[in-house]
Nucleic acid binder design. Structure first.
Lengths: 202, 202, 202, 202
DNA sequence: CATGAATGAGAGTTCATTCAT
DNA sequence: GATGAATGAACTCTCATTCAT
């Protein structure tokens, strides 16, 4: 599921029919990463899926509805990336796992991170309906708890600020995410360097 | 002054006449930060300055020319922020000074960082004319040299990777920059936490 | 019918629905004759047909595409006028028939000739895409062959230059065509006088 | 004065200062021939002369005034071409002289004839202020008198219609004039062929 | 479900013209 | 005279959206 072009492939319903709604979301998601909201056209999204621009409105009454669905999709993808695999691992192991997973994702599906930044910037302007911020808050809480636990278990220095460090991680991911398409690999380098510091023996 | 909206104020020429070109650049710059390229309208830029939309084309033949001028402006502002104050200071002092300056700027003129991210995303799609990338490269080189010197002078651990660390700093600034308007202070927290690590005795 | 304004009337498809594309071409054609390219406005063309200006772009992406369609239409109309009715007639009879047909057309649909001159002038400036010139060349060849045959069959003087005479006929039609709307009848007079010379016994 | 580029050259006042008004008329005249009224821009006219677009309005309050001046200029040029050199010559000689002069002019200053057709088409739409038509009428009268005299003096056949023949000459000149720039020489061929007929011994 | 046709609102841009300097 | 700055009106073209079929 993490293969490069996976997202661009056809999506099938259980019954075997292509799930148009999902196809449209993926097409819009890719176009946002490629051209930004500035260059997003509903006709182009429809064309990518092979349907008429007017038909798109059967699935999403307005352009904003389509965008909202893309936001939901991106949120879901990132939430999945957050979840650790093994609940019995130590905090450093859990954090390592998560950062490694993000680094891989950045290489395999760079669009996800570019779209993330695009969406983030856009939603900052509409705080009322900022669903992404809500997820970022969850992520931040999750990271803070992880770091707090690690500190209590003496994995990390006592004077480490869990809240600030959680923000550092998020800023790093989003900052490096901008380069994901044009300079893949740089994100991995950045995350690896960060981890070296954090995990260095105190 | 460095107050948030300072940039939006009238800009005067030596003779006392408003410098329309500069006013237009500033208005466009602020609108990009506020509404993104998606919401940038030349008529709105002109209106902000109090002139007719057609008059804007007297100064900038096309919208793209205006945007280019904004890019140049942002580049210039950030280049100024880079320059260290005292050439005789030690590498950690120089780095500290620079990060502190950026943190202050993030509080005083958050638009600069939001505009920076907007521009960054946009220029990734037009690599041929990516002036911002050129500046980022200069900045990266500057940081790398600073870190390298610091390592040689034993301020920092021998196993610190200067190239990767320079990228970390840039990612951090651009990642945190996205929040500059909606959550000022968070950027400062992030940069401060980062510095604590780096400057901690090895 | 061949009445003057016939071309401006509604054009119906087989099924009874108006053929918008054709309607637009005719409206543009008439406006070119009436106001020239200088005064041709896509909104006016659309209004003439009773549709919104934006809808015109549904049929013709750009104004230039519409103009090209008008050129094709004029070319087709004139090519039809060229064709002789009876292949067994003598060259003078064939020429007479053709000139008479043109003279009638000049009276019945003067716009055709004014549009012809407008288009001719315009296309001289864009030799690369001069479709009209191609047709004029065909016409010229056709006339030259007709005259050549007539000379061989002793209908006309041996020293008659078929090439130059063919050009004379074309120049006469286009020169007189300019007056078609304001002074109908003058074209007929001119063509009749010319024929009198040519057909006079050598 | 009949040299190819003469019209484009600087025009000097008696005192030695360039006559801006005349320069502007010539620039506009050339631009009309090159791009038609469709492509005529006052700024382009001014630029050709090396002055600001606003300055042009000192000499010609409106674009229409400038165009009127060009019409006057073209009328004057053509009237000059009409005048025979020797009043004691025979009608055929006078006509020959005139046609030869026109053919030479067509080669030396093709713009004149293209501009003529452009103006002609345009003025047909504004019969009230059709100065060109007035001149054409004069020319027509002049030709008719010439032909009439020639017929009376037995130079030409009695059944020649002077009025229609005068129209033929004018149609021929204007019809061939359209090709003057793209195919010089063709006009001369056409006029020569015509003359051969007319002057052929009855 | 799907579409072609249609549209209103608005985009960037052009251009003749005006005016203070 | 000459100009840069400014403008209103109009231009072509775009686009999300609607609707009858």
């Amino acid at each position: 599921m993490d293969e490069p072009q996976a997202a661009a492939r056809l999506v099938y319903h259980r019954e075997g029919k292509p799930d148009r709604r999902q196809e449209l979301i993926l097409a819009a998601y890719n176009l946002i990463a490629q051209r930004g909201f500035e260059g997003l056209r509903v006709r182009a999204v429809a064309a990518q899926v092979g349907i008429n621009g007017a038909t798109l409105h059967h699935y999403f009454p307005t352009k904003e509805d389509l965008i909202q669905a893309v936001v939901d999709y991106v949120v879901a993808r990132l939430s999945a990336a957050e979840a650790g695999p093994d609940l019995h691992a130590s905090p450093p192991e859990l954090l390592h796992y998560q950062l490694k997973h993000l680094a891989q994702l950045m290489q395999n599906e760079p669009q996800l991170f570019v779209a993330l930044v695009e969406i983030n910037l856009r939603q900052q302007r509409n705080p009322a309906a900022n669903f992404l911020a809500r997820r970022e808050k969850d992520w931040h809480t999750h990271l803070t708890n992880l770091l707090q636990t690690g500190i209590e278990q003496k994995y990390w220095a006592q004077n480490l600020d869990p809240t600030a460090t959680a923000s550092v991680i998020i800023a790093l991911v989003e900052g490096a995410g901008q380069w994901a398409i044009t300079d893949p690999g740089r994100g991995e380098q950045v995350l690896a360097q960060f981890e070296k510091w954090l995990l260095a023996p105190p």
